[in-house]
Simulated assay, not measured.
Amino acid sequence: MSRINRSKNSLKVIGLTMVTCLMVTLLSACGKSDTVTRSDFLLDTFVSITLYGESDEALLDKPFEKIEALNLELSSTDAGSDVLLINANAGIQPVKVSEATYRIIEKGIYYSEISGGYFDATAGPLIDLWAIHEPEIKDPPSPERIAEAQKKIDYTKIVLNPSEQTVYLTDPGMVINLGSVSKGCIADAVMAVIKEEGVKHAIVNLGGNILVMGGKANGTDFGVGVEDPNNPGNGYIGVVSIKDGSVVTSGDYERYFTDSAGKRYHHILDPFTGYPSESGLTQVTVVTDASIDGDGLTTTLFLLGLDKGLALVEKLDGVEAIFVTKDNRVIATKGLKDIFKFDETNYGKTYTFTQLQ
């Protein structure tokens, strides 16, 4: 990594550390002595783990080792990773993978199925074609190239062999991309390590994937802020209060580029159109027990749009969601009635809030 890139990432970490203190209502002030915390720039994002009621910083070693190990397995670019081997052997042969990789691909297929293909675990060719990362000015891919990428997307052509723990993509050129579920998978695995170490109160923050355990030492809930999509990084339209569970938010402002005419293209791609989703939503927040489910569902619900998204949430146990539409409506599902508080004072004039009953 160059010296310039090191400086850039350090600035991101410093800024996001302050955001984390605002986003999560912690047991105490960020620097109090009965907490240990560590942050780094991993998974192409800001990562922070905080343990409460603990003073031994060595307790953070294994959680961060787990992040790095799983990142190597699930990366689509690191040489020798499970995902890279699966993609390299598309149309050639099955690939034996780790248990973590196998389970996350099973979960990717599950969300592909329940979304009717809006979420597709094999959308890699389209994601690679658009290559949406940091904000920049460039032109979108041609319709012809988009159509070619779409031909290689079909989650039903993922063949799993549970007895051999292998994964096979039947057609050459297919590409699995686990970006929409990998952070959630890693967050859950990291929290499992923290529990094994005997920690009772913790927050894992993987770039907006928030997973909390045990509530505050005084028995009250953590408060997790839901970002203002019209002004990301500078305010929260409300707070979700939970002791244990995951809060994950995805929005069309997170990664995007602008073309030469000034049109913006965000990173949540619709496999049916080949273009960034135009579902009418600008942000989705999902509250679940497991972070992998929150991760997969934020993308799924965003692509489905408000009506279909609400219908899906109604069918799923232990899932609640907050939808923000492009016309500034905020809709919270039934189960959030007692745990999500919309900030009417500061955002009541900007957003119309509806709590479903």
Score class of each variant (00 low, 15 high):
Thr166Phe: 07
Ile210His: 06
Phe222Ala: 09
Pro140Asp: 06
Gly208Phe: 07
Asn205Glu: 14
Gly179Gln: 01
Gly184Ser: 11
Gly179Cys: 05
Ala202Lys: 01
Glu197Arg: 13
Ile194Val: 15
Pro143Trp: 08
Ile137Gly: 02
Gly198Tyr: 11
Val224Lys: 04
Lys152Leu: 15
Ile146Tyr: 03
Pro143Gly: 08
Glu148Cys: 04
Arg145Cys: 00
Ala192Met: 10
Gly173Lys: 02
Ser163Met: 11
Leu206Tyr: 13
Met191Pro: 02
Ile203Pro: 00
Gln165Phe: 03
Pro135Gly: 09
Leu178Cys: 00
Asn161Met: 08
Trp130Tyr: 04
Asp171Gly: 01
Ser180Phe: 04
Gln165Asn: 11
Val159Ala: 11
Ala202Asp: 05
Ala131Cys: 08
Ala217Arg: 11
Thr166His: 08
Lys195Val: 13
Ser142Ala: 12
Pro143Phe: 09
Cys185Gly: 10
Pro140Thr: 04
Lys157Glu: 13
Gly223His: 11
Glu164His: 05
Thr156Asp: 09
Ser142Cys: 06
Asp188Pro: 06
Ile203Ala: 07
Tyr168Trp: 13
Asn161Gln: 10
Val204Ser: 03
Ile210Glu: 02
Asn161Asp: 15
Ile158Ala: 04
Gly215Met: 10
Met191His: 06
Pro172Lys: 12
Glu148His: 08
Ile194Gln: 05
Cys185Ala: 14
Ile176Gln: 01
Gly184Glu: 07
Val181His: 02
Ile176Leu: 15
Val212Gln: 05
Asp154Ser: 13
Thr220Asp: 13
Lys151His: 09
Asn205Arg: 05
